[in-house]
Design a binder for these strands. Sequence first.
RNA 1: CGAGGCGUAGCUCAGCUUGGUAGAGCGCGUGCUUUGGGAGCACGAAGUCGCAGGUUCAAAUCCUGUCGCCUCGACCA
Length: 501
Amino acid sequence: MSKDLGITPRGENYAEWYNDLVKRADLAENSVVRGCMVIKPHGFALWELMRDALDGMFKASGHVNACFPLLIPKSFFEREAEHVEGFAKECAIVTHHRLTADGQGGLIPDPEAMLEEPYVIRPTSETIIWHSYKNWIQSYRDLPILINQWANVMRWELRPRLFLRTAEFFWQEGHTAHATYEEAEEEALLILGIYRRFCEEWMCVPVVAGIKSEGEKFAGADHTYTIETMTQDLRAIQAGTSHHLGQNFAKAFDVKYQSAEGKEEFVWATSWGVSTRLIGTLIMAHSDDKGLVCPPRIAPVQVAIIPIARADDRERVFAAADQLAEALRSSSWSGLPLRVKVDKSDKSPGFKFNEWELKGSCLRIELGPRDLDANQAVIARRDSSEKSTVALDQVVAQVLASLDSLQNSLFDRATVLLESNTKRVDNWEDFKAAFGGEGGGGFVVAHWDGTAETEARINEETRATIRCIPIVPLDPADAEPGQCVLTGRPSKQRVVFAKAY
RNA sequence: CGAGGCGUAGCUCAGCUUGGUAGAGCGCGUGCUUUGGGAGCACGAAGUCGCAGGUUCAAAUCCUGUCGCCUCGACCA
């Protein structure tokens, strides 16, 4: 049946399932531009809902939005050694400002118009922003700066995947400046908490919050916090990161402030971001072989009303559907008006059922002559396919209750997936076996001696990486010392290993 | 960059071995009949066969070159 829908079942080929789903749910398609995607209206609606929710949380915690240039002078990247090493390999460069005829009907960059210094299309904006901050910060009174920007960035990825890793992607990047290490630390953790709340309370995606190993941290950071979640094929996916940048960028861009005591100090920094990868995360967390499954709080369409009518019933059924839609739209759930779509297209009812399942409508209301005669409607849930018959004057109440229930059960289901595929492993044979097959292997919580060499060897032999060192141990016993699963050397605590997207 | 594969209608693909009038399904348009899990019939529109050379009376098909894309690795939000 799902073959008919054009979606490869998850069990058959998870990667194909994902690609099929993105296309069939009408979220995005590949662009003619290598590695870039076209985000279609339905996919962008998802992003807008995510963006609005996050933007509200950022602003509620004192952040403001601004916008910096897309192009960054190449030399800016040379100022922070680790940063340049991290990004140099994937930068797109602008070298000319004009085209000219090549004499054969084509166009070439005008050699006369070569830039003295090339620009890099931003892969991330620390450098250009800290260049501005140098001008904005003189005194402790100028701090903190709590700026966020919603932007697109470009990284010339070698292997793109829709939403998960594209050459151009949309994100938000927060860049804050602080007077002290502690204040920056507090900020980094505050944002991590916002990311966690967003993932869990909006997206129904439970996460493990932790700190990255030296090898996995952001290029140029002092340390990096992350939230990691699990996909249905038992891999890890990094949903968001928050970096304590120490004084690295302040030193690179010479940003100092004068303290209340009159001393000159370098500024402390954080940066943090989530991207359109969240859409990929969402898909991988909840969707099924019938299409997108969307948590109500970020579903572009929460209720799809399908009027079912022959020609002579059409008028009264459409009128009733519109009336019901208005009643729903004028009620709110989770603080916002309900998002309702009446599908009056001339497709058959069966087609529409499948279509709205593909596109992830949380609830479907079927409304036909039989229902109108009985003063009722049929409500179907996307997650369980469960159908119920409800009196028309009860529909709004039932819809609100079902959305609550759906929001909760998606989170619960994802939590069960994560917890039941998180295991503790204490010897190398079991560790290798856990990551043996195709697909994920879940989260393996194991001891590690803390060295980069061991981390690299484990990666080589199993393709698993250290996802994070949990801030709060998943189990209190995880924080107890032990012996490294590979080397047997002393380990301070258990860390989370997984194969990652 | 390594390994595989693919470029023919909007999409998925057949045709190529053995050169000779450009095909199918889906989708699209029109009309009629339909409508509670991807409706039926009829008619119709739709192509620089990725691009450039070459061989040939003749190239989607053979040869050379080239560009691009996809999947899997190495890099990564």
